[in-house]
Design a protein around this nucleic acid. Structure first.
Lengths: 332, 332
DNA sequence: TTGAAAGCGCTACCAG
DNA sequence: CTGGTAGCGCTTTCAA
């Protein structure tokens, strides 16, 4: 016997044909209980594990789903991958994980590699706008976009504009007029949509847009911190800050605590570790990765099992979770 | 042409044999530049992507590494997977990700599934003590244990006992004698080792062990918080707390801030989000997941490329990072 | 430098 | 209920 036993070894050991072993392994009917028992015994004695490459090659369908995201170091995506894996496992599929690092070329390489690995489907947090090169594979490999929608694909997203408007509305209701927006990053439609929500809400309330309150390129922790610190050098600093993503939220709160400006109202888009511990606890827009991940993998499984299903954009609801920091009234 | 072009389609399109296409795809020498160019053109025109199943089946070696961890929702493991993926990609390998959920049965299923998927090697944060069932696969699929060592396998770990002793030593040097240990979990050798370091350090300094200061089963955020709160119901509460993992650290700090005991000294094993933002910032033992992940994937690649390499346990250094909370003197 | 043919382990098809 | 055989797409061996 070779390194790893093959179906042939098992068949020889059990004294049956390979086809019978195949039937047992795939739990097909029409195998005598006695035969089945004998085969099962041989399988466990030899430690046989089916060769997934051979199976995939022959059948044309793989046994894994691909998940392509910005970076797994982001807790949002970590949670997303976690639920996807759990659900995939229940369908007897593994997870091939790949990150884009926000790079379109790398995104492309990763997607094509996954296609070559015959994944059953792909969940993608897209970077590029256009994925025309995937057209050839879509028929056999359904794709669900998460976090950022793409028109010609199924997607699972939250309504960024609406959620942000609700947050800004709350600030205005509490008397704030100097409201900052931290975390803008032109590369992502999520933050541009959130900025659009910010803009709309201000316009609706007749508050003029002040560009000094919405610094660019502040989507990462350190940038957001620096940007926030900069706000307090302004002639009239903000009394409320909207953080457009959790990393920006961390930077904003860090800056406020470092400088003692803990009376400034804060709402963060997305929860982050410790947001509930700090005082005041940080209010946030609940963009639950478990919820999103679940919807995405369910959708993908549907597309796998029922090809040709009508394309769909799934928009999940968000709540504004009050924990203190977002409920601070304007003072002056 | 079928759904996806195969090497045969490319060969026909370019007017060469499949072997020549294979040579081009695998960047083998001895192909005329003109021939190579023609084949490359056909490949891009047809959108050919090599079928990884066929390649794996024929060659017997896969094109992915497996990573098996407790849960990707743990930021430590998320960072670990992140570096592993980056390095694997440089070797033209993908990452098959699987979680154990701390369950031995699931660990086993996942490992056998990965074996069936012909991964080139596996990085595993082990749950079970014994992995005898893997013996058959070890020859062809090297395995590197991370975080928790296993004697018969290569492993990459930190010296838990020594690192913890250093932390407790610092507490004693600052005058503390009532030192609590939060985050014990008998299931993991890491926390039992850390507890052992705690025990040793106290013994060395002649401080009697007080079991009420080391509550059991407090390795998760909420448990740790509850356990910490419980400490302040004691006749003589602790003046210093050692948190045995980052999640315990979050729970401890949450409890201290909730109750206003911010004068209690704290050192956490492992950094966590916001540990630097809270006041006082939390001192921690630097168990850098990037460092560990790097060492693990480098080791795995060595084992893949040079089978039969002598088994090795790699112990990484840790630093005690002073940020304030660990440097608080005993008051009474 | 290029090609023809065998065969990896498995499943699908068709017989018995 | 069970078995033989073809062939998935590719790499490997041997020839030309």
């Amino acid at each position: 016997m070779r390194d790893r036993p093959s179906i042939t070894d098992v068949a020889a050991h059990a004294g049956v044909s390979i086809k019978t072993v195949s039937r047992v392994v795939n739990a097909e009917a029409s195998v005598l209980p006695a035969t089945r028992a004998r085969v099962d015994l041989s399988i466990s004695e030899l430690g046989y594990v089916p060769n997934s490459s051979a199976r995939t090659l022959k059948s044309g369908v793989g046994d894994a789903v691909g998940v392509v995201i910005d970076t797994i170091a982001d807790p949002f995506f970590a949670a997303l991958v976690s639920v996807i894996e759990t659900r995939a496992l229940a369908e007897d599929m593994g997870v091939l994980f790949a990150s884009t690092g926000f790079d379109e070329g790398r995104e492309r390489d990763q997607l094509l590699r996954l296609a070559g690995q015959q994944v059953r489907g792909i969940i993608l947090a897209p970077v590029a706008q256009d994925h025309g090169y995937l057209e050839r594979y879509r028929a056999s490999t359904p794709i669900v976009m998460v976090d950022r929608p793409r028109d010609t694909f199924d997607s699972v997203v939250v309504d960024d504009i609406r959620a942000t408007r609700a947050a800004i509305d709350q600030f205005v209701r509490l008397g704030h007029t100097r409201i900052a927006f931290i975390g803008f990053d032109a590369r992502f439609s999520t933050t541009t949509h959130r900025y659009e929500g910010y803009r709309q809400a201000l316009a609706e309330h007749g508050i003029p847009l002040d560009h000094t309150l919405a610094p660019q390129a502040a989507a990462e922790v350190t940038d957001a911190k620096v940007a926030t610190l900069g706000l307090f050098g302004l002639a009239s600093p903000p009394t409320a800050i909207f953080a457009a993503n959790p990393r920006a939220g961390i930077g904003v709160v860090d800056a406020l605590h470092t400088t003692g400006h803990t009376g400034v109202a804060v709402i963060s888009f997305g929860d982050f570790a410790f947001a509930s511990v700090i005082r005041p606890a940080v209010s946030y827009i609940d963009q639950d990765p478990f919820h999103i991940g679940n919807a995405a993998i369910e959708r993908l499984i549907t597309l796998i099992n029922e090809p040709g299903t009508q394309r769909k954009r799934i928009v999940l609801d968000t709540n504004l979770v009050a924990r203190g920091s977002g409920e601070i009234r304007a003072t002056a």
